Simulated scan of single mutants.
Amino acid sequence: MLNVLVLTDFSNAAYHAARYTCHLSRSIPVKRIILFHAYQSVAPVVLSTVANNASKEELDREYTDMLLDMANQLEPESHEDTAIDLLTEDVQLDEVLNEICQREHIDLVVMGIGSDTQASERSSNAILVPEKASCPVLVVPESAEIQNIKHVVFATDLRELESPAYNQITKWLDLFQSKLDVLNVDEEEKEFGAESFFEIKELHNWLDKYKPEYHYSNSKEEGNAIVNFARNHKASLILSLPRVRSFFSNLFHHSITKEITYHSDIPLLFLHEA
């Protein structure tokens, strides 16, 4: 069963991501949902009543009370066997995230991205957290419908992937048991010719058991291509294994960020190759 760390700054977007996670616990096996607030993190508190000069003990009590109130609201939406735990620490999120994930045996980190005045900052966090995290990260737009994951789009650039990467992909596809579309994005303009033969064959060897539909795009704007494809095919989740920052920077380029933040209802699950 999964342990899920939900990052919260007590914003509407964070609360929506937590609700989404609770609903998810009804369709996949989630043992624990940990609501985590880092009050000196890259995602600052927006709804705190604590004075700036409050002591660490006062801050801990205040934020724990806020987390408890949040947990009480969320409990009816989660599976009855899923525990909701609370965690608040005086830390910089990006410096301790992996330590917390290791300590708490986290399988998935969840964060929200919103459409309010702090949207641009959360967009930066949506790049930073998946890059820093050693485990999968689910980014949930505030406009995302709270629903079961029924249709996954797996976006890939057809580079050669090792077995650990495919093990990650199949683990989550096995959990979701959803319809699968595979979108191959030709970012290097290989045009899916002989040079891509091995990668395509390997992709089929690993994924054909899910009976996916395969699609190809040679768009130079891969972020736009992925998001637009997922939207047009009414996907409920985009899954990807971005290797380098350029993918994140492109996917969360200003125009794409605006689409995701203000218009898209598609959560994004970022996996890692090892």
Results as ranks from 00 to 15, higher is better:
3 N>W: 01
182 V>E: 09
28 I>E: 07
130 P>G: 01
173 L>V: 10
52 N>Q: 15
79 H>F: 15
193 G>T: 13
27 S>T: 15
184 N>H: 15
43 A>R: 03
202 E>F: 11
3 N>A: 08
78 S>Q: 10
80 E>V: 15
129 V>T: 12
133 A>Y: 01
78 S>T: 15
205 N>Y: 11
96 V>N: 02
245 R>G: 04
173 L>I: 11
12 N>E: 15
190 K>W: 11
112 G>I: 06
107 D>F: 07
86 L>V: 09
256 I>M: 13
162 E>T: 10
242 P>W: 06
198 F>Q: 13
239 L>R: 05
13 A>E: 08
217 S>A: 09
144 A>R: 03
252 F>G: 00
111 M>K: 05
65 D>H: 12
248 F>T: 01
196 S>C: 13
157 D>F: 06
221 E>G: 00
32 R>S: 08
104 E>I: 08
270 F>H: 06
174 D>I: 02
173 L>G: 06
178 S>I: 08
6 V>H: 00
131 E>C: 09
121 E>R: 14
29 P>Y: 06
46 V>I: 13
211 K>F: 05
260 I>K: 07
132 K>N: 09
231 R>H: 14
112 G>A: 08
124 S>G: 10
188 E>M: 08
35 L>M: 10
2 L>V: 03
272 H>C: 02
161 L>D: 00
205 N>M: 12
169 I>P: 00
67 L>P: 00
47 L>S: 07
132 K>Y: 01
236 S>E: 11
75 E>M: 12
17 A>G: 07
170 T>C: 08
38 A>S: 14
153 V>Q: 04
74 L>H: 03
129 V>E: 04
103 R>F: 09
49 T>K: 12
229 F>L: 03
240 S>D: 05
92 Q>L: 13
156 T>C: 00
149 I>L: 14
50 V>P: 03
88 T>M: 03
89 E>N: 08
17 A>R: 01
266 I>R: 03
84 I>F: 00
109 V>Y: 02
169 I>L: 10
54 A>V: 09
218 N>Q: 14
210 Y>P: 07
196 S>V: 10
164 P>F: 10
149 I>G: 01
152 V>T: 08
147 Q>L: 06
195 E>P: 00
18 A>G: 05
171 K>C: 07
156 T>M: 05
1 M>N: 13
268 L>K: 05
219 S>Q: 06
134 S>P: 04
153 V>R: 03
208 D>F: 11
26 R>G: 11
258 K>W: 11
26 R>E: 12
176 F>R: 00
56 K>P: 04
22 C>S: 10
221 E>F: 08
8 T>I: 02
191 E>Q: 13
151 H>M: 06
210 Y>G: 07
203 L>W: 02
170 T>N: 05
56 K>H: 14
222 E>P: 03
33 I>F: 05
187 E>G: 01
239 L>H: 04
79 H>P: 06
177 Q>W: 03
42 V>L: 11
197 F>C: 10
107 D>R: 07
201 K>W: 07
152 V>Y: 02
60 D>Q: 14
223 G>E: 01
171 K>L: 12
152 V>C: 05
227 V>Q: 07
64 T>A: 09
238 I>S: 04
